[in-house]
Amino acid sequence: MSTGIVLQIAQTLLAILLAPLLMGWVNQCRAWLQGRSAPPLTQPYRMLRKLFHKDAVLAHDASRLFRFAPYIIFACMVLAAGIVPTIVNDLPFSPAADVIALVGIYALARVFLALAAMDIGTSFGTLGARREMLVSFLAEPALLMVFFTASLISQSTELPVIVQTLAHKEFAIYPSMAFAAVAFWMISVAENARIPVDNPTTHLELTMIHEAMILEYSARHLALIEWAVALKLFTYSALGIALFVPWGIAPRGDLGALPLALLALLVKMIVGGAALSLLEAISAKVRLFRAPEFLGTAFLLGVLGMLIHFLLEV
C-alpha cells in the first residue's frame, strides 16, 4: 500500500512536470510543419516562470470566484492526472473516481472556467463562455460514449480494469474501439481547443473560444490556467494511450516493468504529439457552426461503437 501511494504521488508529479514539455513538443512540431523556426522545447516552462513572477492585474470588478477559479481548475486537472494510468496501473487513488467521474472532473473545471470568464462581464468573456459550453455539451456525452464502449468490453468503468483488460489479458481486436478511437480523436481536438474546432494561437473574435475566456487573466492566475491546459492535453493523451495503445503500462505490483513503462510512455507521447501537430497542420479550422456538426459526428460515432460492440463482440 505504501509503495502504491509513493508511486501514485510520483506518477502525478511526473504528469504535472511533463505536461508543459508535451505542449512544447507539439508547438515545436507544428512550427516545423509550418516552415517556421521552432521555439525551444522548454518554452512553456519559461513562460510559466515568467508569469509567476509578474504582478497580477485584475479588473476592478473581479470577484473572488474569478480569483479562485484557476486554483480549482488546476486542482481538477491534477486530480485527472492522478486517475489516468500513465506508467503504473491500478494505483491506490483510482477507485475514488471512475471514468464517469473523470468526465465529471473535466466538466467541473470547464464550468468554473466559463463562470470565471463571465465574472467581469466583458463582451469577449461571455462570448468565450458561451462557445465553450456549446462545444462541451456535445463533446462531454461523446467522451462518455467512448468510455462506455471501453467499459462494455471490460465490464467495468474503472480505468485500471479497462487497461488491464485491453493490455494484459489475451490479445483481441475490438472493432468497436476503431469507432471509439475516431470519436476520441475528434473530442480531444475539440476539448483541448485545437484546430479544427478552435485555434490556440489566435485572438480573433470570429474564431476564438478558449482564448476569449482567459483574456482577463494575468500573472499567476494565467500561469495556473496555462499549466492546467497543458495538463489537460497530457491527460487526454494519456487517456488515448490507456484506451487504444495500452501496451507497456506496468501491471500492478510489477516494479521491474517501470523503466520500460516510462520509456514506452515517452515514445508514445512523442509520436502522439507529432501526430496531433500533423493533423492540425493538414486540417483547416471549421466555421463555428460546423463545430456542433463535427462533435455531433463524434457523438454518433461513439454510439455506433457501442452498437458494433453488441453485434460483433458479445
Partner: peptide, 27 residues
C-alpha cells in the same frame, strides 16, 4: 473471444466498412 485473429481482422474491416459508410454520409 474465441475467434481466430484473421477473423477478428475481418470483423475490424467490417467495422471500417460501416465507418466509411458513415463518413460518406457526412461528406
Amino acid at each position: 473471444m474465441s475467434l481466430t485473429y484473421h477473423l477478428q481482422v475481418v470483423n475490424l474491416l467490417a467495422a471500417l466498412l460501416l465507418l466509411i459508410s458513415f463518413a460518406m454520409l457526412s461528406q
